[in-house]
Design a binder for these strands. Structure first.
Lengths: 197, 197
DNA sequence: ATTAAACGCTACGATACCGTATCGTATCAT
DNA sequence: ATGATACGATACGGTATCGTAGCGTTTAAT
């Protein structure tokens, strides 16, 4: 044994892999279930049924239903990669077109309203939601900051406002007006917002 | 009796008033409960407890829990009044400032995410949500149409896109980024959108 | 082979909720 | 006064869910 003495208390990889296999299976199933029915209809029993992992085992890893739900929600915190086309308009277009494509299809777009709703009354979910949101806005904030650095954007520019002006209309169409989001719409929004800088 | 003969089958006002009193009490309580916990945690038992109306009576008026929830949700379908300041910018400003004031306080702003979430998987709620949404957008659409009539706005202008560009950022701040919505923000959005027409 | 950790299975207790049944009471028009 | 209609109170049956207990079985390290 090269990395541990005989009083090793940290589990070796092999031992861990069994635990991790369970954890991973459960989390994957949990997220899948979340995508389908949202936070409200999420049940531990159903996760157990689908995943094949015994309910007792699930409760050995997560102390409560809430903990599992939050863990599954955290899977949505995935920062996108930031493009670098050289121009602000190019970057913004790349980002928004990507999001516009994800909005009608990606799993997280079905779960998000549920998280927003839960976050409205639950501080812990509000924190998770906040992290997800920052993940969505991060690439946009970055390309805007870069534009400021290049002098393409005024130093006084209110980045938060611009982000809201760009993302807001897309989100609005996805969850509120429920209209389709085609490239023409995306470009119209970008044109309007960037023209006024 | 002036308005009915002796074979009157439509209940008189007095008879109705008893029924209507129950209906109204229940609906008010139901809406209040909705505001607090959303659709998910809404229970008929709790409505009965709070309103003082017996659960049996509730089920005499609504066949199922769903029906009561939807009826309570329909209370949110209230079209705002449309301002008429003479100029497009004046009208739009009046509308958005009003909404910006309502967003952090009005009851419906706490329920809406719940409805959006439910609508994601339930066609009946999607219909209710659609009506609520049209109610929110209606004044905006009207003042934009009027501006077209005055020649203040091009006939080619895509009203739906402009509505999304105006309402989207406000909604985004209320439910997604959870940032405050001050008048400065509202005016910045209006300026950006209207400047590009 | 032995042993400890992790897992599966079944069965619970507890609670909450839906929707109904039953029966007695209050209201109100006539 | 009488009868019809609506209401209240209580008690259910049925189901779903959370979280736990008990106990045997598998896995994998030594």
């Amino acid at each position: 044994m090269t990395t541990s003495n005989k009083s090793e208390r940290v589990p070796s990889d092999k031992v861990n892999s069994r635990v991790e296999r369970s954890r991973h299976t459960v989390l994957t199933t949990a997220f899948e279930l979340l995508s389908e029915g949202g936070v409200a209809s999420f049940t531990v029993d159903e996760v157990a049924r689908r995943s094949g992992v015994a309910k007792t085992t699930i409760y050995r890893h997560w102390p409560t239903r809430e903990a599992l739900v939050m863990d599954a929600c955290s899977r949505m915190i995935a920062e996108q990669e930031t493009p670098d086309t050289g121009s602000l308009e190019g970057d913004v277009t790349a980002i928004l077109v990507e999001i516009a494509h994800l909005l009608p299809t990606a799993n997280w777009s079905f779960v998000l309203p549920s998280i927003v709703d839960t976050a409205e009354r639950n501080p812990e979910f509000a924190e998770i939601h906040s992290r997800i949101q920052r993940g969505h806005a991060a690439p946009l904030r970055e390309v805007l900051q870069r534009a400021v650095g290049r002098g393409e954007l005024s130093v006084d520019a209110d980045v938060s406002t611009i982000v809201a002006a760009l993302l807001g209309p897309l989100f609005y169409r996805r969850w509120f007006s429920r209209e389709p989001i085609d490239d023409q719409f995306v470009k119209a929004i970008i044109k309007r917002v960037l023209a006024s800088l």
